[in-house]
Nucleic acid binder design. Structure first.
Lengths: 199, 199
DNA sequence: ACACCACGCGAACGATCGTGCTATTCTCGC
DNA sequence: GCGAGAATAGCACGATCGTTCGCGTGGTGT
């Protein structure tokens, strides 16, 4: 890795952490330059524009998410074990030390939901992928006989996702010490319902 | 109402809408002045500082939320009907025309979760109130015999809230046309579980 | 109707934003 | 170890941020 790539990676490290805490609005070239010890223009040269930096931050976040949550889960056995691995991996993701502000995507989602552009488009695409992954995992669990045959797998993905969002909210905004327990309760209930024979 | 109060209210109207779409970061005195036809300094004079404006926006949002969601729900009969009214009122709240960016509080939550200060403190207090209201409503439903006796009412509030957050996410970011149906499904399931006799 | 004061405007402030240019320093292949 | 090209610094730019101040003007209470 050349010198340039090294510093670029170091910048992105700080940028991801900053974006996690303060969002893209709080991610400024000035503060980023201060934190990395670079000059503002020296830092800027690594990215053609602010938007390119933001895109790079998003890409770096996705890369980490895939490596830490997706990939390990796909090493777990198909069906319910994989779904449990996704749940656990995502819980750990929320508390990753390099994401001091919690899940990067939840923060970005609220900032970008009314701001059209390539950044928003990519985030939406990633989110759809992630939700589709959840739904597919549920379908596999049905095929494996872990979940009941008539399970609405898209609804399962929605409910799964809603637990994540609530955890983020209760943990990061309200600092609720019970947030994790509540999330686990909700997940256990969700799984129980998915296993049960249909009514 | 004096002239000053009138313009102040008009400013807050625009400010609430702007904060709903773009968050507090996108809420600038300049754009607000342009939209209201005031000069920047003239507008500024109505609020001692940007933070005071933000606090006023939050207060105005809470006022509307109470008037449109809380108050009507408390006119509904105690127990399950009231809980259903809370759910419906909140669904309507998300799509209020004066909140073009969706629920004001969800947007603010993500912006303030790592930004200490009086603004964050107040938002947290409001959110705790809202959650406590949900839990209390569930306890009443238990007392009325609508919900089973051993229901975990705090967990119920968590699950209820998670549906709201997921709806916001699927509706506003992903523009998912099924968002409302998914939310209703999840709510129906939540109620069913709360009614059922304990396992 | 008059006086007064709230109300709003205009100009300017220092800071910081993202972004160009030019120069200097450093790195790495030969 | 030298020369080419990448990497970084320095400086300046226009724009916009929140904020201050002084000055008019028009709404308001008597």
């Amino acid at each position: 890795m050349s010198k340039g790539d090294e510093t670029r990676a170091a910048i992105l490290d700080r940028a991801v952490a900053e974006a996690s805490r303060l969002g893209l609005a709080g991610l400024t070239l000035g503060s980023l330059a201060r934190q990395t010890g670079l000059s503002k223009s020296g830092l800027f040269a690594h990215f053609g524009s602010k938007e390119d930096l933001e895109l790079a931050v998003l890409a770096a976040g996705v890369e980490r998410f895939v490596a830490r949550v997706m990939a390990p889960a796909f090493k777990a056995p198909r069906g319910l074990p994989r779904i449990e691995a996704l749940f656990e991996g995502w819980l750990a993701w929320h508390r990753a030390p390099d994401l001091p502000g919690g899940c990067l995507f939840v923060g970005l989602a609220n900032e970008l939901d009314d701001r059209p552009g390539p950044l928003r488009d990519r985030l939406v695409a990633y989110q759809r992928d992630w939700i589709e992954t959840l739904a597919t995992a549920a379908r596999i669990a049905v095929a494996e006989g872990h979940f009941r045959a008539d399970l609405d797998c898209e609804q399962f993905a929605y409910d799964f996702y809603s637990i994540e969002l609530a955890y983020h909210h209760f943990h990061r905004l309200l600092r609720d010490p019970d947030a994790e327990r509540r999330a686990r309760n909700a997940f256990a209930e969700l799984v129980t319902l998915a296993r049960a024979a249909s009514a």
